[in-house]
């Protein structure tokens, strides 16, 4: 049998499971561990609904094989809230009405959280005028470009961008 035992730390909880080598992280999370926060949209890395933080970085869990990430630390949107208090990004999506059907939302929120860390680390994007610049100034164009891996077929982008903008501005003030 093509099976392997792996350990995953999901939302701060350790799990040991035996998986078929074909199992993606997304299927391991949803089907084996009952964590349905990351969603299966396209299952081909095109829509971003499955986005999780994988060892601290946003990634498409549908294209990551579970066996290849034995020992990984995974954070889903579900664990962003602390002690019942929503994460600022989650609150901001509610305040700005940054969704309609909600299916892409957990992926959008995790992706936005990972994206702001990338900005803080000074990573350039396709719309960054000078890639050698020390600091990134997070314009709306930067947010749109950096979030292009998350599709919303309801088209809530007009509210998603301000939702992220508010959290980014709050972070910058701190």
């Amino acid at each position: 049998m093509n099976e392997e035992e792996i350990m995953l730390r999901v939302d701060c909880e350790e799990h040991r499971i035996i998986v078929d080598t074909r199992t993606t992280l997304l299927d391991a999370l949803r089907e084996r561990l009952g964590n349905t926060s990351p969603k299966k949209g396209c299952d081909h890395g095109q829509c971003g609904a499955c986005t999780v933080l994988l060892d601290g970085r946003r990634a498409n869990s549908c294209l990551a094989l579970a066996v290849a990430h034995d020992g990984a630390e995974i954070v889903t949107a579900e664990a962003l809230a602390e002690n019942g208090d929503l994460h600022p990004m989650q609150r901001s999506f509610i305040e700005h009405d940054g969704y309609q059907c909600g299916y892409c939302t957990p992926g959008q929120i995790v992706s936005a959280v990972g994206m702001l860390d990338e900005v803080e680390a000074g990573w350039p994007s396709h719309v960054t005028g000078d890639v050698s610049a020390e600091k990134i100034s997070l314009s709306d164009a930067e947010i749109r470009e950096r979030m292009s891996g998350n599709l919303c077929r309801c088209g809530a982008y007009a509210n998603i961008v301000p939702a992220i903008r508010e959290v980014a501005d709050e972070r910058a003030r701190r």
């Binding site: 971003g48 498409n60 294209l63 992706s111 350039p124 396709h126 292009s148 891996g149």
Partner: peptide, 10 residues
């Protein structure tokens, strides 16, 4: 940075 998405590049 002109290719793929943030998630894929990671």
């Amino acid at each position: 940075v002109s290719g793929a998405s943030g998630q894929l590049r990671n």
